[in-house]
Design a protein around this nucleic acid. Sequence first.
RNA 1: GCGAACUUGGCGGAAUGGUAGACGCACGAGACUUAAAAUCUUGAGUCCGCAAGGGCGUGCGGGUUCGAGUCCCGCAGUUCGCACCA
Length: 875
Amino acid sequence: MMDDMNENETAAVDSRLSFDFAEAEPRWQQAWARARSFAAADHPPADRPKYYVLEMFPYPSGQLHMGHVRNYALGDVVARYKRAKGFSVLHPMGWDAFGLPAENAARERGVHPGAWTMDNIAAMRGTLQRLGFSLDWDREIATCLPDYYGRQQKLFLDMWRAGLVERKESAVNWDPVDQTVLANEQVVDGRGWRSGALIEKKRLSQWFLKITDFAGPLLEGLETLDRWPARVRVMQERWIGRSEGARLRFPLEAPPDGFDGDLDAVEVFTTRPDTLFGMSFVAIAADHPLAAKVGRRDAGARAFIEECQRLGTSEEAIEMAEKRGYDTGLRVANPFRPDQTVPVWIANFVLMEYGTGAVFGCPCGDQRDLDFARIYGLPVVPVILPPGEDAESFTIGATAVTGEGTLIHSGFLDGLSTTEGKRRAIERLEAMGVGHGVVNWRLRDWGISRQRYWGCPIPVIHCETCGAVPVPDDQLPVVLPEDVTFDRPGNPLDHHPTWKHVACPKCGRPATRETDTCDTFVDSSWYFARFTAPHAGTPTDVAAADAWLPVDQYIGGIEHAILHLLYARFFTRAMHETGHLNVDEPFAGLFTQGMITHESYRDAGGWLAPEDVEKRGDGMVRRDNGQPVTVGRSEKMSKSKRNTVSPTAIVERFGADTARWFVLSDSPPERDMEWTEAGVAAAARFGQRLFRLVAGVAARDGAASAHGPGGEELRRATHRTIAAVTEALESFTPNVAVARIHELTSALVEAEKSDAPGVAAARREAATALCLLCAPMQPHLAEEMMALLEPGGPMVVERPWPEAEPELLTVTRITLGVQVMGKLRGTIEVAPDAPAAEVLALAEAEPNVARMLEGKRIVKRVHVPNRIVNFVVAG
RNA sequence: GCGAACUUGGCGGAAUGGUAGACGCACGAGACUUAAAAUCUUGAGUCCGCAAGGGCGUGCGGGUUCGAGUCCCGCAGUUCGCACCA
């Protein structure tokens, strides 16, 4: 196999001297596939460390976009580099294959979501393979196949048994366009994250995963994730939102008839129990049950509640920023001041979703409370004295005291700091039996029910007698019916004539299946674990999971900083608790890559695609009619602005290696990078230049083996480059690796002019190093070049990463900068670690330095060995 | 409003507190060519100077240091995240 390949190539070089990517890239891809070069062991061998590198798996929309190429090129650099470094590498790929677009395609074009999805997967798999990523395709999974989602149903049932699943009626976010429920995380500024429709509140029975059971561990776990970007950790920390305070109960004074049970008191959460002496009102949310109760007998309250619900507590309301309220006429007593009662208001700034949906208002200590009190003329009692203020003269103006201070007008708390006051107030509330210290979380349980067809069926059967009954394990998977119609809105599973009608597993009477399916974020919450044993009959093979997890390097977009990454962290813990895993954190290292941007073009007729325009002079014109077009700033590639570039077109025109090389060059991967035609062309040119260079070395110096003095300089450059590229790849800066490879290439070009003894062997060594160093980025080119240098030798993917020889990293001469008063005035050549006296004498004698020192007195001579010399002078 | 990050030539960017601008793009000059493309050589932060060399230079203002793109304080701008969270 290897032999005829190399013969072909030697012939090809002689005739063309160019890298024919269209012919060579698929050939090497086949060679890797035949050699099973990227197949991961079921269990990593004990004598080698394991490395699990994973990129966020794509949604099979039908076409790979450049963002994917950048993502997977980065991951592939890591995978290929680690493999060469001797790690046992797991680098799998799969498809996040459930989701709405498939159903939309079904409605719009009458294709079945499954067929549409599988076609898309086939197309995208083809593109990924054409790009030559070192993926273990034997482990490919698609979440829409029963093989995967059936195991997910098993996980759901195990979590249910472990008390991590709950069915409850709750106010949900209803997306009227997509006709489904959304999680809080999927509502952005009051709109659906996908449809952009204004979200409505609806009460529905929903399945919840109790992520709040893990609020504490999920927060604490963040501290262990030292290879995650700080900002992602901060975002999750704020999302989980731990806050310490107290819950306290204010019984209603003289509750009217019918205000009994839970409605005879108002329960509030506060972080400021120390300010209770300054309470001048209690405020409840418009959708608080007590408000509803009041509304039933008070038309004014009813009107106010409806107004609040119309405006919501998001965008518009905040923009107005106007505090509004309605006095219910109810009153509650202040437990610390039994003589005093305060009114209960319904207020537009209180959120039902946080805490208890009710607050006590202390205008002194909270800006919102103060604003509200000023509008409605409620008392403002100064109970916090800021440092440096005088207790006698201190008054509250338009600004509340939100910082630390000393408590005043506060009975038994007088004179205490706010911090100490909180502690003492909670002690007193607990002693009085009216409240207690609590930790409150912002995180809500995760509602996973979706009224969609194309998702994982929730494995539950509803029986009139037995209630919600789990589908027995031996009846899994609950498979989606194929024969569904999309001719009316709503969930096709609901409309299906037979699918949902089954016998109750408990009592055998007629019952109905749950027709809701899982939020697709459930699918992506454990796929990394499934990859460790993708064909196991159970969700995971615990031994395989133990061997591979956690993922050592996870790579993807910042847009998943909260949703996906938090859910996956939760799932990992829940799977640990249910015996499917033994780790708590799924991703030891996380890298968030930047977007790919492109200029946009438009004329009077609208947006124009990059292939429709061309450069003329300083501007851009339409290719078809030569008319000038307006060039917009470089921004995220999007279909609407038509500033996208298709990976398949680029691969066809320039080859996979050029596409990969370009997305890795120039910009550091965490930043956005601009796609330019000139940039790709330059990447293509470099590949050809390198190929010709190495082909030339192979032809001329192929047999050379004896090193000699004439090759020393190039050898040093080679080994410096090996060290530098290694460091660049270790530190996730492939752009720097690219620059170093360029430098060695230029050094090799320079060395071609020499015929000094030993230079041929050094050239051969440099060329070999270049092959190995560029291989993680341009793997096909590397193989092609290596086959020329060493016909019949092993493939690059089978070779170890080059090692820099330490003795070639030491230098014999150092160019040292010489400064006078911190300004560079000249350079001198010295031996490494030359004695200070010698260096200083040489430095002082440097003509330009000497001139600058003339007539001055040297006050201080700074000599940092092998770094710098600096003379401090006076006069 | 709160929080975080970022700011270096025409552009993308490089630089363990030690010769700022590596490498690439774009650009200029030259070679090859009938010509163009490709390729090769070469130049370039900016100002003054024939040159040697010098002045000024990493958003702005301060500070620490023999020495600051890098560390500290303040300001401005840009971007991102959260947003009435009690």
